[in-house]
Design a protein around this nucleic acid. Structure first.
Length: 583
DNA sequence: TTAAATGT
């Protein structure tokens, strides 16, 4: 219902855009074929991509006109929209893109290719006397990454969860600082939470290092890309005329970086500075247009970076069907995933469940209720050791008491994930079912032990958007317990008066987008969408399939132990793939 | 469908 409205609205938006284009850049010849092409390009933008492939395998859904792609290509050529240096679209081989996005993307790629050849800084300082750092415990690819920092201006370090990206980064920094101890190094990430996580893992990594550079390692500044760049409402304090004073910058979670942010970074970063770009190529694209990381992972781009393009393959997590099904999502069509999922045994660590009613599934309700009861009991135990009266205005830090630590790690026993926030099987629906229809206005009614999410950066409290905490205590003794890294790099659990928080929401369920970077032992996924047409016929993946694969991949790779995926069975019943499997 | 970030 909701989906239909949204769908209609987005067709309206696309229709309006087409009309505007017709008016502003009148085509020599207008046609419905042209409108098809504009629609397809817009859909592509919604998914963070800037181009569409115009071949017979990549026909977009809901075409008005027959004859894809020949008739559409002909209409494009007749329109004049491909002619000259100011045309709205660009066609290269059979890749069609909006000129504006295409040129920005090409510019960024070109910039990075040039930077990749800048390697003087470390090479000049290297001397045969420097003892190579201890690379024991690293696998072959990780060692190659560490050595590559000497010879490559840009490192593209890609890998899935648990492939040791961060520990490799620590070794890279150690190697670079060992060669040139005065190197000015920075750490960055696109979100506050990712930056905090990077900071914490680097801190953890350097504790193991006994040699000289560890002193300088602990002083490496880490913040969001926006903060590095001095962003304020679309403009940046740091730019070509006021560049960043850095020799080496590490950017983590590159899959969330969009083209505009990357462009701003490259403007502000001096040409001779080295870059280490780190990310998972199979995670979700950024919401805004320009999935620069996905573009950088294409083979014909990677070759320009020589030994600087390193993919970490070996996973140190996940076994059995969970591992093989996440591999399927990376390597095969979406069809193979559903096919294998419905064939897995009842004892597998990933299972699918069909639900007849359009309600919150019983199994989820039971599991979540048990989980919340456990958390509530733990909060009671913590309350017993807290002082009778907590100070109302200030925060109270507990230096990682065993009780507080146990609560926060127990939140990660179970994570409920939804692709959507609103509508059928969305995050809000789970919250309404557990906390009542007006849960947003009645925070005081959320029971003790309710997991919560901070949804705005508040660095003065040590909190980042996306941090998960828990409700403790009642009445004016109510506090929210979070794990934070203090300015002096100490890990503490902090009790915060709810009045001090700008934005807080319940976190009984969270969106898959929000879950990027988090983990839990057990993951439950509510998958409300139809298993697509293409799935039934085992065709090549559409853009939507690619997006769904990334979504499912992100969801199931959050799990340390097991995954349960719920699918509505009305749609399942009509799906030949599944009825065949069941019959 | 889905985000994210910043300063006066």
């Amino acid at each position: 219902m909701n989906f239909d409205n949204k769908h209609k609205r987005s067709s309206k938006v696309k229709g309006a855009l087409f009309q505007t284009l017709l008016r502003r850049i009148p085509p020599k010849q207008a046609s419905s074929h042209l409108e098809d092409v504009v629609d397809a390009l817009m859909d592509s933008l919604f998914e963070g991509e800037v181009d569409i492939l115009m071949n017979k395998f990549s026909a977009p859904p809901n075409l008005r006109c027959k004859g894809w792609p020949e008739a559409h290509l002909e209409a494009l050529k007749a329109s004049g929209w491909l002619d000259g240096d100011t045309s709205p679209m660009v066609l290269i081989e059979n890749q069609l893109s909006w000129r504006r996005w295409h040129e920005e993307m090409e510019e960024v790629i070109k910039n990075l290719k040039v930077r990749a050849k800048n390697t003087k800084l470390l090479v000049a300082s290297i001397s045969p006397k420097t003892d190579p750092i201890n690379l024991q415990g690293l696998n072959t690819e990780q060692k190659l990454a560490v050595e590559a920092i000497i010879h490559q201006g840009v490192l593209l370090l890609s890998g899935g969860p648990g492939t040791g990206k961060t520990s490799t980064v620590v070794k890279i920094l150690q190697r670079a600082l060992e060669i040139k101890p005065t190197l000015k190094v920075g750490l960055a990430a696109p979100t506050g939470k990712a930056a905090a996580r990077l900071q914490a893992s680097v801190q953890k990594g350097i504790q193991k290092i006994q040699t000289l550079p560890s002193q300088s390692l602990s002083e490496i500044p880490c913040s969001t890309l926006h903060r590095w760049l001095g962003a304020s409402h679309g403009s940046y304090k740091k730019n070509k005329n006021n560049p960043l004073n850095l020799d080496l910058l590490v950017v983590d979670e590159m899959s969330m970086v969009d083209i505009a942010l990357m462009k701003a970074l490259l403007e502000a970063l001096p040409h001779q500075s080295q870059l280490v770009l780190v990310g998972d190529p199979n995670q979700l694209p950024p919401i805004n247009s320009g999935a620069i990381w996905h573009r950088l992972q294409k083979n014909d781009t990677r070759i320009y970076f020589d030994e600087g393009a390193i993919h970490l393959k070996k996973t140190y997590r996940n076994r059995g069907d969970l591992a093989s099904l996440s591999n399927l999502l990376c390597q095969k069509e979406l069809y193979s995933f559903w096919d294998k999922l419905f064939k897995t045994s009842k004892t597998a660590n990933i299972k699918a469940h069909q639900c007849k009613e359009r309600l919150i599934p019983n199994l989820l309700t039971t599991q979540l209720r048990d989980h919340l009861r456990d958390l509530e009991e733990l909060t009671q135990q913590l309350l017993k050791i807290l002082p009778e009266n907590l100070s109302p205005s200030s925060t109270t830090d507990i230096t990682i008491g065993a009780e507080a630590e146990l609560i926060l790690s127990s939140i990660e026993n179970l994570m409920v994930l939804c692709p959507k926030k609103l509508g059928f099987w969305g995050v809000d629906e789970v919250h309404k079912s557990f906390l009542g229809p007006s849960f947003k206005d009645n925070m005081t009614d959320w029971p003790q032990g309710t997991p919560v999410m901070c949804s705005e950066n508040q660095s003065e409290l040590g909190l980042a958007n996306g941090d998960i905490g828990i409700v403790i205590g009642e009445g004016n003794q109510r506090r929210l317990l979070f794990r934070v890294l203090t300015e002096s790099q100490k890990l503490v659990t902090r009790l915060i008066n709810p009045a001090r928080l700008k934005a807080i929401e319940p976190a009984l369920a969270i969106t898959i987008h929000k879950a990027q970077g988090s983990e839990a032992d057990e993951v439950i996924v509510l998958w409300p969408e139809e298993i697509s047409e293409a799935t039934k016929e085992n065709k090549l993946s559409t853009k939507q399939d690619l997006y769904d694969k990334r979504m499912l991949y992100t969801a199931i790779t959050r799990a340390r132990d097991s995954v349960d995926i719920f699918i509505p069975s009305v749609q399942v019943r009509n799906n030949p793939v599944i009825s065949k499997l069941n019959g």
